[in-house]
Amino acid sequence: MENVMVVGAGAAGLAVAAQLKARGVDCVVVERGPGVATSWRGRYDRLRLHTTRRLSGLPGFPIPREYGRWVRRDDLVRYLEAYAERFGIEVRTGVTVERVKPGADGWSLRLADGSEQPARTLVVATGYLHTPAVPQWPGMQSWTGTVTHSAQYRNAEPFRGKNVLVVGPGNSGAEIATDLAEGGAASVSLAIRTPPHIVRRETAGWPAQMNGVLLGRLPERAFNAIAAAMARVEMPDLRPYGIDRPAQGLKTRLRTQRYVPLQDVGIVRDVVSGRVRPVAAVRGFTETSVLLADGTSLQPDAVIAATGYETGLRELFEDASLFDETGVPLVHGGAPARPGLYFTGYDVTLGGMLRQAAMESRVVARTIVVTGQR
Rank of each mutant, 00 (worst) to 15 (best):
M1F: 12
E2C: 10
M5E: 05
V6M: 00
V7N: 03
G8P: 03
G10R: 03
G10C: 07
A12N: 09
G13W: 01
A18K: 01
A18H: 03
Q19A: 13
Q19M: 14
R23L: 10
V25F: 08
V29H: 01
V29Q: 03
P34T: 13
P34H: 14
T38Y: 01
S39V: 05
R41A: 06
G42D: 15
R43A: 08
D45L: 05
R69M: 14
W70F: 02
R73Y: 06
R78E: 10
Y83G: 06
Y83Q: 05
A84H: 07
E85G: 09
G88F: 09
T93Y: 02
G94T: 08
G103I: 00
G106F: 03
G106E: 03
L111F: 03
Q117L: 09
P118Q: 06
A119G: 10
T121K: 11
T121W: 04
V124N: 06
A125F: 03
T126M: 02
Y128G: 03
T131R: 02
A133C: 14
A133W: 12
P135E: 06
W137A: 11
W137R: 09
P138V: 00
Q141T: 12
W143M: 14
V147Q: 15
V147M: 11
H149I: 07
S150H: 11
Y153E: 06
N155R: 07
A156C: 09
P158N: 00
N163H: 12
N163F: 10
V164H: 02
V167L: 07
G170H: 02
N171M: 01
S172M: 11
L180T: 00
L180G: 11
V188N: 15
S189W: 09
L190N: 05
I192Q: 04
R193K: 12
P196W: 01
V199Q: 12
E202V: 08
T203A: 14
A204L: 14
G205K: 02
P207F: 04
A208N: 07
A208C: 12
M210C: 15
L214W: 05
R217V: 07
L218E: 15
E220V: 11
N224C: 12
I226C: 04
A227K: 07
R232S: 12
R232E: 15
M235G: 11
M235T: 05
D237P: 02
D237N: 03
G242H: 09
G242T: 13
R245I: 13
A247V: 14
K251N: 14
L254E: 07
Q257A: 08
Q257N: 10
Q257P: 11
R277A: 07
A280L: 08
V282K: 06
V282D: 05
G284Y: 00
E287Y: 06
E287I: 10
V290A: 04
L291E: 05
L291W: 02
L292V: 00
T296C: 05
T296E: 05
A302I: 00
A306D: 15
Y309H: 05
T311I: 13
R314H: 09
S321K: 02
L322Y: 01
T326Y: 04
G334R: 01
A337P: 10
G340T: 00
L341I: 11
Y342E: 08
D347M: 09
V348M: 14
G352Q: 01
L354S: 04
A358M: 08
M359S: 13
R362D: 15
A365F: 06
A365E: 06
T367I: 07
I368H: 03
V369H: 14
G372Y: 04
